[in-house]
Write a protein that binds this DNA or RNA. Structure first.
Lengths: 344, 344
DNA sequence: TTTAGCACTCATTCACTGAGAGTGCTAACA
DNA sequence: TGTTAGCACTCTCAGTGAATGAGTGCTAAA
C-alpha cells in the first residue's frame, strides 16, 4: 500500500493524536479546526476523520463522541509523525545533579534512575539491573547463623555484595565450611562470574577431598552465584501515575498495582520486549492481555556488545511518546556510561 | 468521673463500633437493634445514642445519618471494650511457613514482616529496622571505583553488609586507603558498632602516622558506621489499603501515597509514637495534622532492654484494632526472637 | 424507665429535560 | 472534483424534582 495516507491526512492524524495526548478527551472536528490551524473547515476534517477511521487509524466510542487514536494510529504516529523532543541541557543538568546528590550506595543508581524517569514522564518506570556477569569474583565468606544454617556472602570486585542463607548439610560443621571457603577463594578469585562453570570447580574437588563436602561446596557456590546473577527489578512512579486521568478509577489503580507487584510477570514482560535499542509496543500490540490498553517503551543497555539490562516506561496508550522516547535514550546512554565506568 | 458509662451504654457503644468497623457505614438505631440482640427497642437505643453523643463518644454527620464513633469513642473501646482476638495457631503456622519460604537474605526478614502484617490487616504496615548497634565490626574494605572515589564496604559479624561511596581526599592514593584498612581492621575487629567512639580510633592515629590520612580514616570509618547504624524503613500494603472503602477516592490515595514516600516524615512519626510495648494512637490524638483521620498502632522490639526498632500498622480510624493489636504483639515477639537468635 | 408513634430531615436514586458537542449526509459552490 | 455550509440526528452530561428509605428527636402512653 504505497502512500496510504496523503499529506493532509497525516497532518490531521498528527493533530488529533497531539491533541488527545494533551487533553485525554476524544477530539472532534470543530475543536480540532479551532485549536490547530489546519486551514480547512470542520466539515473537511470530518471527511478526513471518517477516512482515517475506515483505514483503522482512529476509533469511535459512540456515534458523536469525537475520535480517539487506535493502536494503529499511534503506531503510525510513533514511526513517522512524532515531533522530536530531545532532552534539553537544563534537564540533563538537573538529572546529573540528582544523581550526584542521591547516589550514595552503588546500587542506588538503578533506583534513582527509575525515580527520575517516573518523575519526568509521570508514568511507571521499570529498571532491570544487570546480572553482573561481567563482575569478577572477589571473595566468598561464610558466617554462622545458627547450628543449622550459615550466611553466604559473595563479593565482587566492583563492591557489589550479595548475601544468602544456606542450610548446612547434616554432618557438616562450620569448620568444614570455613575450609571450603579458603579453597574456593583461592581458586576463583579474579574470575568473572560468567566464567565460573562446573568445570572450573573441579580443582576444588581434589583439594577438598571429601566427596560429600564437595557436593555442598558446589551447591553453595552455585546458589551464591545465582544470587549474584539475579536480575533486580527497580520500580518507580506508582504514585506519579495517579495524576493520569486514566487512573481516576480506584479499581484500575488496584489492578495495575497488583500487576506491578508480580515481579516475575513484569520481568517476563520486560524480557519479551527487550529488543535492540529503543522498542515501543503500543496497546493491542502487546501479547499480554492485561497490557492491551497500555504501552511500554523499553531501551536496553549493553556493554561490549553484551546485553545487560533494560529500562522502560509503562503507561496508558495515551502517552507522551516523544518525551518518553528521548528521555529513555538519554538515560540509557547515561546508565551504560555509569556501568562502563564502574566496571560492572 | 467515676462510672461515666453504665453497662448498657458500654454495650451499645461496643455494638456500634463493632458494626461500624465491619460495615464502614454510619449505624442507626433500627439496624443496630436488628443485628445485635440488645434486648431493647430502637427507641431506647436512640436515647442511649443521644447520651453517648452528648458525652463525646459518637458523632453525627448530619441530622439523620446514623452515628459514627469519635476518637474518644474508639479510645474507650480500645481501652476496655475490645474483644480479644489472639492469633490462632493456624495463622501462626501460616506466618512461620511464609518466613521460611521467603527469607533468603537476612535483611529480608523485615520486608517480609511488613508484607505479612499488611496482608493480614489489609492496611499499610511499617517496619523500622534496628540500627545494628548490637552488631560487631567484622571487616572494612575499600574497593577502587575511579581515580577519585572508593567504595567502602562494612561487614558485621551477623553478615549484614553496607556499602557506600566515598571521595578520596586529594593527595591520597588507593594504596594509602588499603594501608588504612589494614590498620582499622586490626584495631576494630570484634567491637560492637556502638562501642566505636572517636577515642577508640586514637591508636589508629599513631599507627597510620600521617595526620591528614588519619583524618580521612576517621571520616571514612564514621561514614561507614553511619550507614551501618542507619535505620531502614520497610513499607508494605500500599496495594492492600485500596480495599478499604476509605480509599475509594483517588485523590485520597494519592495524598496518602505521597505521604508514605516521605521516608523522613514517616520515621519521625514512628519515633514520636514509639512507646513501651504496644501503643495505639487514634485519629484526633495524632499530633500531625495529616494523620487526624488515621490511627496508628506501634509495637517496639527490644534486646537486652535496649530499644531496637518499631513495627506498626497505619490505617483509617475505622480499623480492626483487636486483630491488628494482637497480630503486632505476635509479630513483635517473633521479630525479637529472630534478632536475638541472629545476634544483631 | 421504656416504648410506640409520628413528624421531620437528609441522602440517594431515578426519570426527565435541555444544552452542547459531535457525526453523517446532502446539496451547493469554486 | 474537492470543499464547505447546512441540517437532522445522536449521545453525553448537568441539573431538576419526585419518590424512597434510613435515620433522628420528641411526646405521650404503658
Amino acid at each position: 500500500m504505497p502512500m496510504e495516507l496523503d499529506a493532509r491526512k497525516q497532518k490531521v492524524l498528527k493533530a488529533i493524536i497531539d491533541d488527545y495526548i494533551e487533553s485525554a478527551e476524544p477530539v472532534g472536528s470543530r475543536t480540532l479546526a479551532r485549536k490547530h490551524d489546519l486551514g480547512v473547515s470542520p466539515a473537511t476534517i470530518r471527511n478526513e476523520m471518517a477516512d482515517l477511521e475506515m483505514l483503522g487509524y482512529l476509533e469511535h466510542l459512540h456515534t458523536s463522541s469525537g475520535r480517539v487514536p487506535s493502536s494503529k494510529g499511534y503506531r503510525f504516529y510513533v514511526n513517522g509523525l512524532i515531533p522530536p523532543k530531545p532532552v534539553s541541557d537544563e534537564e540533563k543538568k538537573i538529572i546529573n545533579d540528582w544523581y550526584k546528590a542521591r547516589v550514595r550506595r552503588i546500587d542506588e543508581v538503578f533506583q534513582e534512575t527509575a525515580r527520575i524517569i517516573s518523575k519526568v514522564t509521570k508514568n511507571v518506570s521499570l529498571v532491570l539491573a544487570p546480572q553482573m556477569t561481567q563482575a569478577r569474583f572477589r571473595v566468598l565468606q561464610f558466617l554462622p547463623l545458627d547450628d543449622r544454617r550459615v550466611i553466604t556472602v559473595l563479593m565482587t570486585d566492583a563492591g557489589f555484595v550479595e548475601n544468602k542463607i544456606v542450610e548446612m548439610p547434616s554432618g557438616a560443621t562450620f569448620e568444614d565450611f570455613q575450609r571450603m571457603a579458603m579453597v574456593i577463594n583461592k581458586n576463583l578469585a579474579g574470575r568473572s562470574l560468567a566464567a565460573i562453570s562446573p568445570e572450573r570447580l573441579l580443582p576444588i574437588r581434589d583439594e577438598i577431598g571429601d566427596e560429600g563436602l564437595y557436593e555442598s561446596a558446589l551447591e553453595v557456590v552455585n546458589r551464591a552465584l545465582d544470587a549474584g546473577k539475579q536480575e533486580r527489578l527497580y520500580l518507580g512512579g506508582t504514585t506519579q501515575m495517579l495524576t493520569q486521568p486514566e487512573f481516576h478509577d480506584v479499581e484500575k489503580v488496584k489492578h495495575t498495582l497488583m500487576m506491578l507487584e508480580e515481579e516475575e510477570l513484569i520481568k517476563d514482560i520486560l524480557h519479551a520486549h527487550m529488543g535492540d535499542g529503543l522498542e515501543v509496543t503500543i496497546g493491542q500490540e502487546n501479547e499480554d492481555s492485561q497490557m492491551k490498553d497500555s504501552s511500554i517503551i523499553t531501551a536496553t543497555y549493553h556493554l561490549n556488545g553484551e546485553l545487560l539490562g533494560t529500562i522502560a516506561v509503562l503507561g496508558p496508550t495515551r502517552m507522551e511518546y516523544a518525551k518518553a522516547m528521548s528521555l529513555l535514550e538519554y538515560m540509557n546512554d547515561n546508565l551504560t556510561e555509569v556501568i562502563r565506568k564502574y566496571n560492572w
